[in-house]
Structure formats: C-alpha cells, structure tokens
Design a protein around this nucleic acid. Structure first.
Length: 696
DNA sequence: GAGCACTGC
C-alpha cells in the first residue's frame, strides 16, 4: 500500500489531555476580569475543562451572539441547553430553543437531554418536528426543533418572543432554512436586545459567522451611561471534541476511475490493515451497485478476501436493507459499507475505522435562466472531505484514504462548498420572506446572497401564479393562503383552485403523493412486474389520476401492507402520504377551504392541476419521432419519462410536475390536458394564436 | 424503454 499512498502533511488535531480541554478566545478586548480568563484577546488560551460551563454562561450573559465552534463529541449540543436552564434562562415562562437541520437529530438530542436531566420527554424538555409536537406549553423550558419549524413559528410570532435563547446547531451546513433563519435572527436581534443567540458551527465557518453578526455598537450605553445592552460583537468559543485522531492518506498520483480505485483500496485495506469496518463514499446508486458487484465477485474468486460483508447504503434502498448496516459485525469479519452522502451527516455508523473518500458527490444545481434543476457529479469541498474523514474516528483512531492527491486537496478543492441558497430554486424561500413582511429580497441581509437571476425568476413564477401582485406583495387572500401551506407554491395554488372547482378532497391526496419521492417500490430485477402492477391503476388521463386510484385501493384494502406488497407499492411511502394528507386537511380547514369531492369528474381535477402547473405545459411535436415534446413557454425539448403511465401514449397536450435531466429532459408525473384550459387558467400567461395557446 | 445525492415544512 505504501507505494501508492502518501500520508497527509496536515498536523493531527491537538487533543492535549484527558480532561478534554476548552479553548477560549474572544473577538474583542474584555473589560471584565472577574472570571480570570476573559482577559485573553485574539489569542488562544487553554482552560481547564471545569470552566466550560462558566465560560459559556459568561459569554451568553455579556454578548448578544456567541459562536461556538468545535468538533463532534464536544457536548455543545447537549450540555449548553442544560447549563442555560440551570442558570435560569428559562425562568418566568421563557423557553430555550435549540434547532437542528434534521428531524432525527432533533429527536435524538431531545431524548438524550431529557435523560441527562432525569425528566420525562415532553415536559421540561420537549421537541417539535413536522407531524410531531412533544412539548407542554405549561412546563417546557428547553425545546428542540428543526430550523424549518422555527421559521414556520415566525409566521405567528415574528419576533419569537417566547424564546430567551435560540441556539442554532450545525450552522456550517448552510442549509436553505438555516441561512434564512440566521438572516431573520439577526433582524430580530435589533428589536430584541435581550435575546441571546448561540450559533454552533464547524471551526472553518467561525469567522464568516462572526462578521455576519457583527453590528455597529453605537447605542450600547443607557442614559446614565451604564451598560444596558449586551455586547454586539459576537464572542467565539472553541471547544475541542473527544474524537479520535484520523490519519489522512492521499494518492501519490491522480486516478481517472474512482470506482475501480475505491474497490482496490478496500481490498488492500482488508489485506493489510487490522480489523475494523470500512466506509466508502461514492456518488449514487449506480456507482454503489457497481462497486458492490465488483467486490462481491472478488470475494467469490479469491479466498483471501473471505470474511467481507459488503453492504450498499443509499436513501432509495428499501428500509430492511438499509437497516443491515446497523447490525453488529460478527467477530473475525469486516463490514464494508458503500454509501452515498447519506453517511456524511444523516446517518451515524458505529465501528467505522477506515474511510475511503472518492472526492465526489452528487449535487443539485439550479439554472434560473432555464428554470431547471440539475443533479450532477461534482467534486466535494475540503469541509466535506474533513467531515467524511471524521467518520473514521468515532470508536478508535482511524485512517482515511482519499482517492486524490494532496496537491489537489489543497489547490483545487474549494474550502466550503456552495451554500444551498445559491444552487436552488427560491420560490418557497421568497414566499416565506414575503409572508414575514420582507419585501426587498435582494436587499435582505444574507449570509450568502442568492443570484439576482434566481430571485427574479422566483418573483416571476410567483407573479404568474397570482401569488404576488404588481408591487411584488402577497395577494389577498391567495398569496397569504399559499404561504400558510407548507408545500411547493405551485401545489398550493393547485389546492386553492381545487377549492373553487369543487375537487379539494382529491387534490389534497394528489398533493400529498407528489410531495414524496415515489409511491412505487424500487426494484431493479422485477421491472416488468412493476410495470404490470402499474397498469392495474393506470388511466388515460395520466399519472395524477392514476395516483388517486392507488390511494383509493390502499384505503379499500384497510391500509394493508400485504396489499402494497402485492401491488409493488411502497407501504412506508403510503403511510407518509396519509400523514401529509392529514396535515393538509388541517391547514385547509384553518384557511377556510371546505373539503369537497368531484365524484369522479376527472376534467375538473385536471383543470385544478392546470391552474397550478400551467407553466409546465408542452405539446407533442407532430412530425418528430420518439415522442418529442416542446414546452409552450421556452420551446424546450422534453420527453415523457418511461416511468409515467403516459409513456408511449403521447397525448397531444400535457403538463408535468417536474423534470429529471439526464442526457435528455424527462417529464415526471404527467397529465393530459385540453389546450383551452391553459388560457382559461392563466389568461395573463397564454394567448390564442391560430387556435392554440402561445406564451406571452 | 430509463433512472432518483440529501434534507425539510
């Protein structure tokens, strides 16, 4: 192995003593010396671990914003809320809020804190995620929630007045909700000087977070000159974690085929390194299946490779197969998990000692000009590479093999990666800000500004849906109602139109189904059987009405998992559909939509769909071969996806829910329409020309 | 006749 691999030159992280150790550094000179440690300025000083609590409480007391940086395992997430609670930050009916970007993390952290405090989950310590509110308004003092839920709470309480401290965890991940939330929190801070923010982030983002929250500190003195308000310059506290050291190895020479390189690296680790599981990061299902097959063949052909358990891991994998990665490795064997990015942040695997990092992942990019989102294989960032490597050091010191050179890591890889804000469609983001009364989206104080093109495109789409008016303000009632519905605005618009057309009962079912990945079981081997199963539900109107038949069948079966199995339908997906539908029903009730069924009238159904998705209208190119369509607006070449029930049926006019772009643009979830409905639904968008609709 | 990184409300 030594011929190909070169150890990294980055010095191992300092974990200096068995105490753990806290390093404190303040971004500004301190006037107080009461604690004996706060005199250090822009200079690192290690403090004994018992002062962790003191340091945090002091900083939160004196600074409006505290930025906590550090590694996993440093106890930031679980200890800080407890310190704050003990220090009285949740007295007098105030609540300490702690956000996470993922539902699972919220649940896990909340139950751990409840356990550590010796209280019942849902009382002093509670959590709120979509579909689940385990809090008690009378007793909850520490509340964990997803950042998306906190954003939703702002719709009713824009200043988040019930919270005394808000801690935002994993801020370095820079998810869309986190970025929006941080921008809004900074605004709130100006109106609520008593509010305390704690931003928890990876070390690499500390500086940008700190300068973002840095505000001019003019009015800090009260009339008599005493300090009334906290310091407005953020403090930075750095906490070392207890993770084990991970030795980094780079390739001596670059390789062109990372898949092959990954396979041979796994085999040489198995031959030459002591026992311990291996985690391999590849990009997607295709890569992973190919690698699993190559390794399995190798195990069959070569006896020295026995004792290997090879497991794929990606989100589309059926639940039972996903769970295999969590089963303990039998003694004398070695587990090899070949995974997408799901293992980078979403899942934590125990027992990993070796990581093989391809240096690539699939990433979504949005082109505001064509209004199309693309999924492409792209190089990861240095931050991502560090995160992947860290997965090897959870149980004991580990090793990470990077399938690229150190020069590439240092010179070619970007340090951070592009925030989601800058590579996604912004319609939902814009409508959320509009609902909070923020009208100047481009002028908003962003952590990372979205491109003007993307903002303009989002405004345009919302305007065409009559969600925004000529002044780019929310229309009443449509715009305000759409903002209440926690779905894609085009779907929300479809629901509102269904109310007028008398088919809301059916349309909220369709909406629930459209907002999950797929209701079909993904099976590679038995494609034919799946297609046959689909035909049992398929109708000429298209995929949307077909979904209604599936839902009806599921209800008639008594929500049976057996029935799902027989019909190649994903049972877990259907349960989720029921859950989302129930939430939509509640929201509909709240905004005054009466549920009404159209009793099988599919024309009004398709008119409601058209009212939301008129912009996605296409017509068949009559003289072209192979079912080529062109979008009415923009004349883009598109095709019906083979998974659609309208594949090869090729109706003359269709609208689609979304595009998948590979070598071609494929329309997913397609419904046949009458072109006259387009002008009826959106006279501001389409006009007649020689009997057919044409986009303005 | 082909393909879906990952979250979230």
């Amino acid at each position: 192995m030594s011929q190909f691999w070169k150890p990294g030159s980055e010095r191992p992280r300092l974990i200096d003593d068995e105490e753990g150790g806290v390093i404190f550094y303040s971004s500004s000179p301190s006037t107080s010396s009461g604690f004996g440690y706060a005199t250090i300025e822009k200079q690192r000083q290690r403090l004994p671990v018992y002062k962790y609590r003191t340091a945090i409480l002091y900083l939160v007391e004196t600074h409006a914003t505290t930025i906590i940086v550090g590694e996993t395992g440093s106890g930031k997430t679980t200890q800080i809320p407890q310190y704050l609670n003990e220090a009285g930050w949740a007295e007098g009916g105030r609540i300490i809020a702690c956000t996470q970007p993922r539902r699972l993390a919220v649940q896990a952290v909340a139950s751990r804190v409840a356990e550590e405090m010796g209280v019942k989950l849902g009382e002093e310590v509670g959590y709120t995620i979509r579909f689940e509110d385990l809090t008690n308004p009378d007793t909850t003092k520490v509340k964990f929630l997803t950042d998306g839920v906190l954003l939703r709470e702002m719709m009713d309480d824009p200043l988040l007045t019930k919270y005394s401290v808000i801690m935002v965890d994993e801020a370095h991940e820079r998810s869309l909700s986190t970025d929006i939330l941080l921008g809004l929190l900074k605004k709130i801070q100006r109106r609520r000087p008593e509010l305390r923010l704690i931003i928890s982030s990876a070390t690499i983002e500390a500086k940008s977070m700190s300068s973002f929250f840095q505000t001019s500190s003019k009015k800090r003195k009260g009339q008599t000159g005493e300090d009334l308000e906290p310091r407005t310059d953020p403090a930075i506290l750095s906490v070392e974690g207890r993770g084990f050291n991970v030795q980094i190895h780079y390739l001596e020479e670059p390789v062109s085929d990372y898949l092959q390189a990954a396979v041979s690296t796994v085999l040489s680790i198995h031959d030459q390194e002591p026992m311990g599981d291996i985690l391999v990061f590849l990009t997607g299902q295709d890569d992973i299946d190919a690698a699993v097959q190559l390794l399995t063949e190798e195990v069959h052909n070569n006896r020295k490779h026995s004792g290997l358990i090879i497991l794929p891991l990606y989100s589309g994998l059926p639940r039972a197969e996903q769970d295999l990665v969590f089963s303990p490795t039998p003694r004398g064997q070695r587990k090899i998990i070949i995974s997408t990015n799901i293992a980078e942040t979403s899942l934590t695997l125990e027992g990993i000692v070796y990581v093989v990092d391809s240096g690539f992942s699939k990433q979504r990019f949005y082109n505001p000009i064509s209004n199309i989102e693309n999924l492409v294989v792209a190089p990861i960032s240095q931050a991502s590479a560090r995160q992947r490597a860290g997965r090897a050091g959870r149980v004991r010191p580990g090793k990470c093999y990077r399938l690229y050179t150190e020069e590439y890591f240092v010179k070619e890889m970007s340090t951070q990666g592009i925030p989601e804000m800058q590579r996604t469609n912004l319609v939902s983001c814009v409508i959320q800000l509009k609902a909070l009364g923020i009208d100047n989206i481009l002028g908003f104080d962003w952590l990372a500004s979205p491109s003007p093109e993307a903002v303009i495109r989002a405004l345009e789409v919302l305007y065409s849906l009559r969600i925004l008016d000529d002044d780019a303000k929310l229309t009443s009632p449509t715009g305000f109602q759409v903002a209440e519905i926690s779905l894609d605005p085009m779907i929300s618009k479809m629901i509102l139109s269904a109310n007028l057309l008398g088919c809301s009962e059916e349309i909220i079912t369709i909406s629930a189904i459209l907002s999950i990945q797929s209701i079909w079981v993904s099976v590679r081997g038995s494609q034919k059987e799946l297609d046959e199963a689909k035909l049992r539900f398929a109708v000429a109107e298209g995929d949307h009405v077909t979904y209604l038949n599936v839902y009806k069948g599921f209800l008639e079966s008594g929500k049976s998992s057996q029935w799902c199995y027989k019909n190649f339908i994903n049972y877990h997906a259907m349960k989720k559909v029921i859950e989302i539908r129930e939430q939509l029903r509640r929201i509909a009730q709240r905004i005054g939509i009466a549920l009404k069924s159209c009793e099988g009238n599919t024309e009004v159904l398709r008119k409601a769909i058209t009212a939301g998705f008129f912009a996605n209208a296409c017509h068949l190119e009559t003289f072209s071969k192979g079912g080529m369509y062109k979008t009415v607006r923009g004349s883009q070449e598109v095709y019906i996806h083979p998974s659609s029930v309208l594949f090869r049926v090729n109706p003359k006019w269709v609208i689609f829910h979304s595009l998948v772009s590979t070598d071609r643009q494929y329309m997913r979830n397609v419904t046949a329409i009458d072109p006259s409905w387009l002008i009826e639904a959106a006279p501001h968008f389409y006009e007649h020309q020689r009997g057919n609709p044409v986009a303005y």
